[in-house]
């Protein structure tokens, strides 16, 4: 066990997967000698050589499209998109191709690849270095969408994603890259996809969250505890396919639910969770389901601290739901 940052855990996950399986390779813009702009691939070129960790021309379409070809033909590519905000030139390749290959070829061709990409706000990155685009991708049958929130999960989920037979979009909360540390086992281990994580057990209000919102919800829960509200925190960590049973269990347990994400609200991931609970276990609900989200505006720069859900906004919602 080592106490390391989330970015280091990603790096460890890649190294472990590459050591074990010679078909695993990493590439993208600045991924090679520089080790990525956030250093996720640091030292991988020197350890595994330029044919397994390398730079590409500046084309997300090229990165993902070539990864699809590699994946269909026996390699296990881990493509990096430098910022999730820049993934859109590859949207066609992801949505029309990677996600549909197995289905449209009747299972003859498959795309076991991972696209890693940092997402989310909190680094003063303005419109295009801050967005959380998970909802676009969760609307895509055939794709898996994973978002870790701890170093332990980052490594374990990443290795599981690389071993997975289907395409996985692995979104890394860049705000947590260096702001948190956690115990991470040495060597290989996996965290099963499509399983949620109970962050903190509680009896009064369940808060569903993921990625960089997890520590914010934890902070709000501490303040809530001082007001005698016992918060149950659930990290969804795989958004697609979601651990539906787990979600309903946790919702039933408290009968009061808040969902938190930093992406805009309208058609955001929270709507799916809310609908799922309403459709299946509404009779257990003792209060309306509340969402705390980014606003339905583009992501601002100077005032990003107002845009991003913070512990105060989360606490407000917890109190509202609790008092109902």
């Amino acid at each position: 066990m080592a106490n390391i940052t989330l970015i280091k855990a990603v790096n460890e996950g890649l190294r472990t997967a590459m050591q074990k399986d010679p078909t695993v390779l990493c590439f993208g813009e600045d991924v090679g000698p520089k080790g990525g702009v956030f250093l996720a691939t640091e030292n991988l070129t020197s350890e595994f050589g330029e044919s397994r960790c390398f730079d590409t021309p500046l084309s997300e379409d090229g990165i993902v499209g070539s990864a699809i070809g590699m994946a269909m033909n026996g390699l296990r590519p881990v493509a990096e998109i430098q910022f999730q905000d820049f993934i859109y030139p590859a949207f066609d390749q992801i949505v029309s191709e990677a996600a549909k290959m197995r289905y449209r070829s009747g299972g003859q061709y498959t795309v076991p690849m991972v696209i890693r990409t940092p997402y989310g706000g909190g680094i003063r990155g303005g419109l295009y270095h801050s967005q959380s685009g998970e909802a676009y991708f969760c609307h895509t049958p055939g794709l898996k969408v994973v978002i870790p929130s701890t170093p332990h999960d980052a490594k374990g989920l990443l290795i599981a994603s690389i071993q997975d037979p289907d395409p996985v979009l692995f979104m890394e909360p860049k705000a947590l890259y260096r702001s948190i540390k956690g115990e991470v086992p040495e060597g290989e281990y996996t965290v099963d996809l499509s399983t949620l994580r109970s962050v903190k057990e509680g009896e009064d209000v369940t808060v569903f969250c993921y990625g960089a919102m997890v520590p914010i919800v934890e902070k709000a829960a501490k303040v809530a505890a001082e007001k005698n509200i016992d918060v149950n925190i659930v990290d969804l960590r795989t958004l697609l396919p979601l651990d539906e049973e787990g979600v309903l269990e946790h919702a039933k347990r408290t009968g009061r639910v808040v969902i938190v994400h930093e992406a805009p609200r309208f058609c955001g991931y929270g709507s799916e969770v809310s609908a799922m609970i309403a459709e299946n276990v509404i009779e257990y609900m003792e209060a309306p389901i509340k969402r705390v989200t980014g606003f339905d505006t583009p992501f601002p720069n100077t005032l990003e601290h107002h845009y991003m859900p913070d512990d105060r906004r989360v606490l407000d919602a917890i109190e509202e739901v609790y008092a109902y």
Binding site: L58, D85, Y88, P89, G126, L127, H129, N301
Partner: peptide
């Protein structure tokens, strides 16, 4: 205050169309 620094946008005295981060 919506954009990162260096992403200028001017309509006077010249039309300098709002700079975007996505390349190309």
């Amino acid at each position: 205050g919506r954009q990162m620094p260096v992403h200028f946008s001017f309509s006077e005295p010249i039309k300098l169309v709002s700079i975007s981060s996505p390349i190309g």
